[in-house]
Nucleic acid binder design. Structure first.
Lengths: 133, 133
DNA sequence: ATTGTTGCAAAAGCTTTGCACCAGC
DNA sequence: GCTGGTGCAAAGCTTTTGCAACAAT
């Protein structure tokens, strides 16, 4: 769980380590309220402004990824191997899925529109396995 | 520009017709501020609460689609043939693109996770043709 | 006449900011 | 000691809500 802070010009603080750990142990992307809850479970009192600042800093440095799934707010997750999300419209669960959007798509986009793709986000909405029963 | 309101139990009002027309004539998804600007150009004074209520109603009825592209707010567009978006990280322009995410992806998701896909959203981020020059 | 729609004003939810103080390096 | 991080309180922005008046069917 050692994010090389110094390389990025960042200082290591209790709050930052905790946020990295919390996101690392979560099985889905967390919103700020969720992160604050976990911090409280660890008996860490961290101001909301600080949480937002930590997340913004981490986002700029590429340590966390910011995602939106139609809730009108952000969720955050550790930046890891690129993946996509399955959002259950029944229970709200968010699962990761690793499927490969091949480079063919980027090439197709470039060919059709002259647009140079640098990244993408892909979310699936539907019904998770449990909610189908 | 005739959305069959009555079938949906909706009443036809000036504000609603204007919103449909504005979104129909826009070349990219608009946020609420943008819609209000267009309404003002038409000399229509429509309260922001009303704009939000119109958009929410239209969204529920499947008349408009709500999208998020990492801005912390919603944008709206007329629900038409399914397509995706190219978001230029330099100038902010949002283009539509029609590429086909084949059903193979839905099948792959179901096979891997038992998740029944109903819809998806896919956005590409990168540099548009003009901004490359 | 009924029912849905709007305006107004207030509030709610998420996120940011200014500033003084404090901690990591 | 310097630089950057934090807490606190206030504000900013987007979106929602209650209620009374109004308009469409």
């Amino acid at each position: 769980m050692n994010t090389d802070y110094s390389k990025q010009g960042l200082k290591q603080t209790e709050a930052r380590s905790a946020v990295v750990m919390i996101l690392g142990n979560s099985n889905g992307p967390l919103d700020v309220a969720g992160i604050k809850e976990e911090l409280e479970k660890l008996d860490l009192k961290v101001d909301q402004a600080t949480v937002y600042r930590i997340l913004n800093t981490f986002h700029e440095k590429g340590i966390v990824k910011r995602i939106e799934i139609g809730e009108g707010k952000y969720r955050y997750e550790i930046e890891k191997e690129h993946h996509h999300h399955l959002v259950c419209t029944n229970c709200g669960k968010i699962e990761d899925i690793e499927i490969d959007l091949s480079d063919d798509f980027d090439r197709e986009v470039f060919k059709k529109k002259g647009f140079r793709v640098e990244s993408h986000s892909l979310e699936f909405f539907g019904v998770c396995e449990l909610c189908q029963k």
